[in-house]
Structures are given as structure tokens and as C-alpha cells.
């Protein structure tokens, strides 16, 4: 059993590395291709594996430190696996003016998950976001790629039930 398990892990690692290498090769020649490359790797794998930053660096003729510097700069980019779905609560001024401070304070209690954590049973991560461009109809939240307006603690659980896939 044990040897079979380690074989699978090995195969998975090889497949991760292959995906990273192929994606990096695809973008390396394009001008400023690093950010699109990192976006694509994250879209495919859900994150950018730290162990393979070196592969990206090689393709782009950069040092691993430089690639790490870019990955760590941007809020959207992650180096560890994350839930495939996300719920983002807008916490910027226009939403604050229409009630997002209450939403921000109460959301953990209502949904049963803290900010920047993955829900224990549902497959999503709860995050803060600063502006979704829906400022005339806040408070706004985003579930995956869909934005919802005029959300409050009362309407939130129903929205999440409808939009999040188990």
C-alpha cells in the first residue's frame, strides 16, 4: 500500500512540474509574459507550487528569487493549494457607506468560516476584496465570477447556498 501511495505522489509531482514547465515555455517568449504565465499556472493548478518556481525562473532567464518576488507581491497569486471556489466580501469605502462593515463583522458567524480560510465542509475560501466596481448597489460580494449587490447578513446564506457548488 505504502509503495503504491508514494508512487502516486511521485506521479502527481511529475505532472505538476510538467504543467508548470509547459506553461512557462508557452509564455517565456512573449513580452512581459511572466504575469500571464503565473495566472495560467494558477488557473490550471489552483496555485503556483513553490517547488517549481525554479522551473519558471529557468524558462524566463530569471533567478528563482525574482520569480518568488513577483508571486509574493500580488494578492491574487498563491503558493499553496486553495479551495477551488471563493467568496469575496467587498470592504472598500462605497460598500462601507452602505453597510459592509456589518457584513464584514458578521460573515464569519453566519457562514462558519473565517477570512482567508477554507470552509471546513464546503469547497470555498472566504476573502476580503477592495472594490468590485458595483459601488452604486453595495454592499457587494463576489462568488466565483459572479457579483451580487445589496447583500446583507440576512440574504447572504441563501446566496451562498445557491451559488456555491458542494
Amino acid at each position: 500500500m505504502l509503495s503504491k501511495h508514494s508512487l502516486t505522489v511521485k506521479a502527481m509531482k511529475a505532472s505538476l512540474e510538467k504543467t508548470v514547465e509547459q506553461t512557462a515555455a508557452k509564455h517565456a517568449a512573449s513580452q512581459g509574459g511572466l504575469l500571464p504565465c503565473l495566472h495560467e499556472i494558477q488557473a490550471k493548478l489552483g496555485y503556483i507550487p513553490n517547488a517549481h518556481l525554479e522551473n519558471i525562473a529557468t524558462a524566463f532567464s530569471l533567478s528563482t528569487a525574482e520569480v518568488h518576488g513577483v508571486v509574493s507581491f500580488y494578492h491574487d497569486l498563491r503558493t499553496s493549494p486553495s479551495a477551488p471556489q471563493s467568496i469575496q466580501i467587498c470592504c472598500a469605502e462605497a460598500c462601507q457607506a452602505s453597510g459592509s462593515r456589518e457584513l464584514e463583522a458578521g460573515v464569519a458567524g453566519v457562514l462558519g468560516v473565517e477570512f482567508d480560510e477554507t470552509h471546513p465542509t464546503h469547497n470555498y475560501r472566504l476573502e476580503r476584496v477592495y472594490c468590485l466596481g458595483n459601488c452604486a448597489c453595495g454592499p457587494s460580494i463576489r462568488i466565483n465570477d459572479d457579483v451580487y449587490g445589496r447583500v446583507d447578513l440576512e440574504s447572504l446564506p441563501q446566496l451562498v447556498t445557491e451559488a456555491v457548488q458542494l
Binding site: G32, L34, D76
Partner: peptide, 26 residues
Amino acid sequence: VRMGAGSYICGEETALLNSLEGKRGV
């Protein structure tokens, strides 16, 4: 079209240029 990655400062034109070049948005 090139996508940003959730950094507010990249709305500043020189940070934006660095980001477009594939660097940190400094």
C-alpha cells in the same frame, strides 16, 4: 488585454508598467 493580479498600486502608471513587464508592481 493583460490582467492585473489584485494590486491597488498597479493603478499608478509606473507600477502598472512594471507589472506589464512581468515584475513586481513597484
